[in-house]
Simulated scan of single mutants.
Amino acid sequence: MTVETAELDDAELIRRSADDPGQFAGLFDRYARQIHLYVARRLGTQAADDIVAETFLVAFRRRHTYDHEFPLARPWLYGIAGTLVARHKRQEERLLRALSRTGVDPLPEPMADTVVRRVTASGRGRELAGALAALSLRDREVLLLVAWEDLSYEEVARALNIPLGTVRSRLHRARKKARAVLELEEE
């Protein structure tokens, strides 16, 4: 990435890519690693390679529809990746259920972020994986974007193209269900 490209916000890179498609590579340089880690946690590293490539291909093809009012394209890219992840829902559920049964994370990366590592350190990783597997895809998507990717509620709403209130209600429901599963495992 050139110094000039590094100084541009995402919206400007997307705008410039209309005349110079190579400018779009700046977005890939900024976000591919983050999106890869997020998808790998959900579907495994092999699927993540494909999903990341497809995410940026879809974004490139749809760049003319990007709302340039938003200087950061990160939520938009997570939204595209989330749609692609939904297509791989069954693989994700199998991965979480396998972790729940065996306690062995089949990924070279940790299953989750700092919060999950703390839970794992206290011997609760298997239960947490089971709790995640028990959530609906829509609730799990919101919870993971907030917990793993540290997106704000507004960014999640933008990424998933849902109202802010829906983000809040899905997150509340996901946390409540996860807590209930974890409390049952304690008994």
Rank of each mutant, 00 (worst) to 15 (best):
P71L: 02
L77M: 05
L43A: 07
R63F: 15
L137R: 00
A48P: 00
G123E: 13
L27S: 06
A73K: 05
E149G: 04
V167D: 12
M1S: 08
H36M: 07
G130E: 15
E54T: 09
L99W: 12
H36D: 12
L135Y: 12
T55N: 09
L151P: 04
D29E: 14
K177N: 06
S17A: 13
E4R: 01
A48Q: 02
R124A: 13
P108K: 13
S169L: 10
E7I: 00
R15S: 11
R16L: 15
G125Q: 07
R90G: 01
S169V: 10
R87V: 01
V146S: 04
E154L: 10
G165R: 09
P71S: 14
D139P: 01
P75E: 15
D105W: 09
G125E: 07
L43Q: 00
L144D: 13
E155Q: 13
F70M: 03
D49W: 01
R62C: 03
M111W: 13
E187A: 10
A180F: 08
A159C: 08
A86V: 02
L107M: 10
K176A: 14
R138T: 11
D139C: 03
D9H: 08
T83V: 04
P21W: 15
V85S: 02
P163F: 01
S169F: 10
P110T: 14
R118P: 01
E183T: 12
G44H: 11
D20C: 04
G130D: 15
L84R: 09
T83A: 01
E185Y: 02
P21V: 12
A48V: 09
T166D: 14
S136H: 06
P163A: 07
G82N: 12
G125H: 08
R140D: 14
R124V: 14
E127Q: 11
V156I: 10
A159D: 14
L8Y: 10
S152F: 14
R140K: 02
A157N: 07
F60K: 03
G103Y: 12
L8F: 08
E185V: 13
L143W: 11
E93L: 09
E54P: 00
I51K: 03
T2Y: 10
I35V: 15
R124E: 15
R124H: 10
Q46L: 11
F60G: 03
L72A: 06
I80V: 07
Q46N: 05
T166S: 14
Y78R: 03
R138M: 02
A121R: 00
I14S: 02
E187I: 11
M1H: 05
F60D: 02
L84G: 04
L96D: 13
E7W: 06
V146M: 02
A174F: 09
R140I: 04
Q46H: 10
